[in-house]
Each structure stands twice: as C-alpha cells, then as structure tokens.
C-alpha cells in the first residue's frame, strides 16, 4: 500500500450517540487506516473545513437521531456551493429504505443499521485499490 486512506469520521447535527462511531474509529485504526474524528455536534460547514484542513480522502457521517436525509442534503449542497468533490458516505440508524435516497442525494455509500464493521472495512479497502 503506497498511501493509507485518510478518513474523517464526523458527527453532524445534535445527535449525541457516539458509541458506534468510536467503535468504527478503533476498528479502522486497527486495520491501518488513518482516522480523524470530529467529536460531537458539528455543523456540516465545520466538518467540511476539518476535511480540507486534514486533507482527508473521504468523510463518514454518523447519524442516529433520524435526521440523516436532511443532513445528507446539507452535505451535498454545501460541497456543491464550495465546488468541492470530496467523497462522503453516511451510516448510523438508517432504515434500509432510506439507503437509495441517500445515494441519490450524492453519497458514495450508505450503511444502514445492522451493517457489520467488516463490511465497512471492506468498502474502504476497495477504495484503496
């Protein structure tokens, strides 16, 4: 591997559930990925600023309060507004039926409730190849 994928894990909105995102951060780090975590309650703008500052390859949004469609749309709009082409994905408490909606908004992937850590790791590995 020439360069490790650098991933920004982010908590947008007011949702305080961070067990999952921290578990994922540990797992990705164990797999050798370069992981940055934003902490709680960040605005989409703060997340994008952090992504630019840390020069990450991809942003992962963790959303468990049910606001995933709204926040994903904000993500898409803000990236467009700034003419940025950073890859991003969403995961958390997301019903299966919302996965196609998130992809349609413009996410590179969406991981609904019950996704295994292994599946997320495989996804990031596939991006490195």
């Amino acid at each position: 591997m020439e360069k490790k994928l650098r991933i920004l894990l982010a908590k947008p909105g007011l949702d305080g559930h961070d067990v999952g995102v921290k578990v994922l951060a540990h797992a990705l780090k164990d797999e050798g990925f370069d992981v940055v975590y934003t902490g709680l309650r960040k605005t989409i703008n703060q997340i994008i600023d952090k992504a630019i500052d840390k020069q990450v390859d991809i942003i992962g949004l963790s959303i468990l309060s049910g606001t995933h469609l709204i926040l994903c749309q904000q993500m898409k709009d803000e990236l467009d507004k700034r003419s940025l082409a950073i890859k991003w994905i969403a995961g958390g408490n997301i019903p299966d039926e919302d996965v196609p909606k998130i992809l349609k908004i413009g996410a590179n992937a969406a991981f609904p409730t019950g996704t295994s850590i292994h599946a997320v790791i495989e996804y990031f590995k596939s991006m490195e190849n």
Partner: peptide
Amino acid sequence: SKQAYIREKGIQ
C-alpha cells in the same frame, strides 16, 4: 470506548 470496541468485536 476501548471496551465498547472489544465488546462489539466479540459480537461481530
């Protein structure tokens, strides 16, 4: 948080 990771790994 480290323990949560160990437990989740155990489940997975």
